[in-house]
Amino acid sequence: MDKPTDSEIIDRLGGTTEVARICQIKPPSVSEWRSTGIPPARRQYLELLRPDAFGVESGEARQAIGALVDSRMSKRALRARLGLSSDAHLAKVLGLPTEDVAAWPEESSVPAVPQVLNLLGTSGLTRAPDQPSDPDADRIVGVDAA
């Protein structure tokens, strides 16, 4: 895959204003990145959100993240490993409400919600097959009347 410049990455992410909104900073800061480069922590955050903008296939990104993240990792350790500073940033990466992520205990293992499992690169839980609404449905047979 191609190795885009920082300016191309910003354009692929929607431009200066959109990147500033995502990172919760002012647009002039992002504009400066076009010449000085995207700071490493911001780059990692943006790459987690949109690996395609960096010329990385989502499968490759998931493998790279999986190598960094352990499924028994605490929320605090997960944030630190991914270079995220708050629950709000982690929630954004996972696509979950901030309140849900904030409710997770800091030192317990992260919950096995589908978004976390996808981030960790593990397969999600399989859904149980739908049960028929009538438990006797398979025992009912047609009756021929004379």
Rank of each mutant, 00 (worst) to 15 (best):
R42K: 14
W104E: 03
G142W: 08
R21G: 09
S108R: 15
C23T: 02
N118G: 14
E57Y: 00
A137I: 14
G55E: 01
G15R: 10
H89M: 15
R12S: 07
E60A: 14
G142A: 13
G37S: 01
D52G: 06
V116D: 02
I65Y: 11
L119T: 03
R43E: 03
R50K: 02
G124N: 15
L78F: 08
A61T: 05
L84E: 04
P27R: 07
S29H: 07
D70V: 01
I65E: 02
D144A: 11
Q115R: 09
C23I: 02
A146I: 03
I9G: 03
L90N: 02
S108C: 07
D6M: 01
R21I: 08
R34W: 07
R21F: 04
D70N: 13
P39E: 03
A80P: 07
I65F: 01
I140S: 05
T16P: 06
P39C: 04
Q63R: 13
G124D: 13
S109L: 00
D138L: 14
A41R: 13
A112H: 10
L125K: 14
L68Y: 07
P105T: 11
R76I: 14
A77R: 14
V116W: 10
E18T: 14
Q115T: 07
D100A: 15
A128Q: 10
L84A: 11
A61R: 13
S7A: 15
E99I: 09
E57T: 05
S7V: 06
D130I: 05
S71G: 07
S58L: 10
G121P: 00
L13H: 00
A41S: 05
R139E: 11
D130N: 11
D6P: 03
F54E: 00
G66Q: 05
S71N: 07
D144N: 06
E32H: 06
L90R: 07
G15V: 09
G142V: 09
V19Y: 01
R62G: 04
T17G: 04
P111W: 11
A67Y: 07
A103Q: 12
S86K: 00
F54V: 07
Q115C: 01
S85G: 15
D6H: 10
V110K: 01
P40C: 04
A145Y: 14
S85W: 02
K75G: 03
R43I: 10
G55M: 09
P51K: 02
L94F: 00
T36Q: 09
V101F: 13
G59Q: 12
S86M: 02
A145N: 09
L125P: 12
V101N: 12
A77E: 14
R81Y: 09
A67P: 06
P40L: 11
L96G: 00
E60T: 12
L84T: 10
P39S: 05
A20T: 02
P27I: 02
L90A: 05
W104S: 08
A102H: 12
G121V: 05
S123N: 13
D144H: 06
S109A: 15
Y45P: 08
I140R: 15
S29A: 15
D70F: 08
A128E: 11
I25P: 03
T16G: 00
G59K: 05
A137H: 04
L119H: 01
S85T: 12
